[in-house]
């Protein structure tokens, strides 16, 4: 297992930056999630690490070896990087067992088959070794793809949207099983997702990207509680935003004050997470709309012409008037 490091990496497509000066580190044996919307450059990072593409500038280091850099591009097949593709890309003409054995061609045939079976067993699919990809369910294909990527003992493994295209129940199960396998093997992992829940639950470290730029790299709890920018806050859950001015250490929103470290008179944007808002009967705001959202209700509240959303366990009635309170950990102020 090795650390994977990107230093000042740039990559352009058709003159536009897909990645603009990104530096980040996937620590050895840990899971780094790359979170961002489509076009944020997260898949490009995986392709650059795998050597499927070359960076336009900067360098990529795996362990102590510079694999991409000025005048140097180690071919993909020599990088010893495992990859699980979004569509799994299992070889359709090979059985599950032969797919897993594909990367073990330096071993003797007997060793190869034995190891392939061991890996299939680890992901709970030993009994499906003879099945062909089209005979496997989506979740089974994903597990075969994971076993195939891990079998050659890669220096790091890259997962590209590994849980998309699965139904929610399968998704949660598979996420836990995948995480367990990765932790058991102590594999350095980079994993791309646009789902905040996946990222928060699976990752040891979180890198949040937008428009080809790295917004923040931090532990999930830190990124959630202390977002470096409005974009980071928005990437990890629904937020409400209010543009105002900082006065006496607070920004006054129609729903209450948010503490701020900005200078007096500075223009500010207050952001409050929907799930950090508590409602109780009172007279600050009016309830416009209530929709069930699992155990919580998603409540739209209005005050002084401003409408916010709150995700709250309290059951409110339409037209009721309420008092609003923010949990401090879910309320932020950024300079505008």
């Amino acid at each position: 297992m090795s650390t994977v490091t990107l230093r000042n990496v740039r990559r352009a497509y058709d003159g536009a930056w897909a990645l603009d000066d990104v530096s980040l580190t996937a620590p050895e044996g840990k899971v780094l999630a790359l979170l961002g919307p489509s076009g944020s450059g997260k898949s490009t990072i995986l392709r650059l690490i795998a050597g499927l593409e070359a960076p336009d500038a900067g360098e990529i280091v795996i362990g102590a070896e510079t694999v991409s850099g000025p005048g140097r591009l180690l071919p993909t097949e020599q990088r010893r990087i495992g990859m699980v593709f979004q569509d799994y890309s299992l070889f359709p003409h090979l059985s599950a067992g032969a797919n897993v054995a594909f990367g073990l061609d330096r071993l003797t045939r007997a060793d190869r088959d034995a190891q392939a079976l061991t890996w299939l067993d680890r992901v709970g699919l030993k009994h499906r070794a003879g099945a062909f990809p089209h005979e496997l369910s989506g979740g089974e294909q994903q597990r075969v793809a994971l076993a195939r990527a891990l079998a050659p003992k890669p220096r790091a493994v890259l997962l590209d949207e590994p849980f998309s295209g699965l139904d929610p129940v399968q998704r949660a199960e598979l996420r836990d099983a995948t995480l367990a396998t990765l932790m058991e093997t102590g594999t350095t992992t980079l994993f791309v997702t646009h789902d905040a829940e996946d990222a928060l639950q699976v990752a040891d470290r979180l890198a949040i990207l937008k428009g080809g730029r790295l917004l923040q790299e931090a532990a999930p709890r830190i990124a959630y509680d202390q977002p470096a920018s409005l974009d980071v806050a928005a990437a990890l859950g629904p937020i409400n935003v209010f543009d105002g001015v900082c006065e006496n250490g607070v920004v006054a929103t129609p729903f209450g004050n948010v503490a701020s470290a900005l200078a007096n008179g500075a223009r500010a944007r207050a952001a409050v997470r929907a799930e950090a808002i508590a409602l109780r009967p009172g007279n600050m705001a009016r309830v416009l709309d209530v929709r069930p959202h699992g155990a919580h209700d998603l409540v739209r509240i209005a005050a002084r012409g401003v409408v916010w959303r709150a995700l709250t366990p309290a059951r409110m009635g339409l037209g009721e008037t309420v008092d609003v309170e923010f949990q401090p950990a879910g309320a932020f102020v950024f300079s505008a």
Binding site: P75, T76, E77, F85, Y88, A149, P152
Partner: peptide
């Protein structure tokens, strides 16, 4: 992805 897969597996 198949070609890319094969490459990441060292082929």
């Amino acid at each position: 992805g198949l070609d890319a897969s094969a490459r990441t597996l060292g082929a």
